[in-house]
Design a binder for these strands. Structure first.
Lengths: 140, 140
DNA sequence: GGTGCAGATGCAACCCTGTTGCGCTTGCAG
DNA sequence: CTGCAAGCGCAACAGGGTTGCATCTGCACC
């Protein structure tokens, strides 16, 4: 997404929550929108390098965005959360994790199966995460 | 698995690698075999409490076991690796992650789909991880 | 049954991701 | 304009995992 468009969309979405509209929220959401792929905290920090916002604030803003449904948190294998703007329904597709560079992105083509009907007695399924691991185009 | 049996199986498998047979390797693999479910580093440390082995050694032994194909590393959402003895083919079933207590176990009933045939150009799939999240029987 | 040494272990110190506590600042309702 | 709850920045901390290095030990060879 282009810079201008990302900023406008971000502003609209943050405003729509009815919560406070702060620069940090706007800038973080805009940064997420500009990136097509899932961004780690560290990558976002770099994206926001110009007039950086505090590490902790970034974590809190990301938490807030996830809480508001404006972003999704993906747990990747390298022990770092990754985040995407909530552009599309995130239950319905798989993620790709590159074993070499650690990059995570969405595989829209790969549909995930629905929640398993048959769970062991006493277990309740709430969500499903499908991750394909391999080597991405950049690393191949 | 019973203690005696676990020790015997562990000894046989470690010997079969042709690499060095050390007490740490035997004890860690036996501990994994005794547990039915995936164990975190911390849980294993507790299991081995009697005459504990060093934190770092435990990490290294686990790495070695994974490298030898004697154990599998599962990345759970709480940013901690979990490990299982490689009893069965681990590609073929899903894992369950409890959102409340963080426990991870194998869902043998839930078959995972085969690797997606259609990947974006330049991407190579090497493995597939399917995780069902929810509340386990103990926490319900 | 020795013995040498590559490889395994233990210890201390470190890194990285993420969190908490707390005083200062600010968006926004009135 | 103003007050104040909510958000922000800083510092300090916590947990999981890794690295460097000196010491120890399985085991291949004698």
């Amino acid at each position: 997404m282009q810079r201008r468009q990302a900023e406008q969309v971000a502003a609209a979405r943050v405003r729509a929550t009815g919560e406070r509209v702060t620069p940090a929220r706007l800038r973080v959401l805009a940064a997420l929108l500009r990136r097509g792929e899932a961004a780690s905290h560290h990558e976002l920090e770099r994206d926001l390098a110009a007039d950086a916002i505090d590490r902790v604030t970034l974590y809190r803003v990301l938490d807030w965005l996830v809480g508001q449904g404006l972003a999704h948190r993906i747990s990747s294998a390298d022990r770092a959360w990754r985040f995407t703007a909530a552009d599309r329904r995130h239950d319905a597709h798989a993620h790709f994790h590159c074993n070499r560079c650690g990059k995570v992105l969405c595989l829209d083509e790969v549909k995930t199966p629905r929640l398993p009907a048959a769970m062991p007695r006493g277990f309740r399924a709430e969500g499903l995460e499908v991750t394909v691991k391999g080597i991405c185009a950049g690393c191949a």
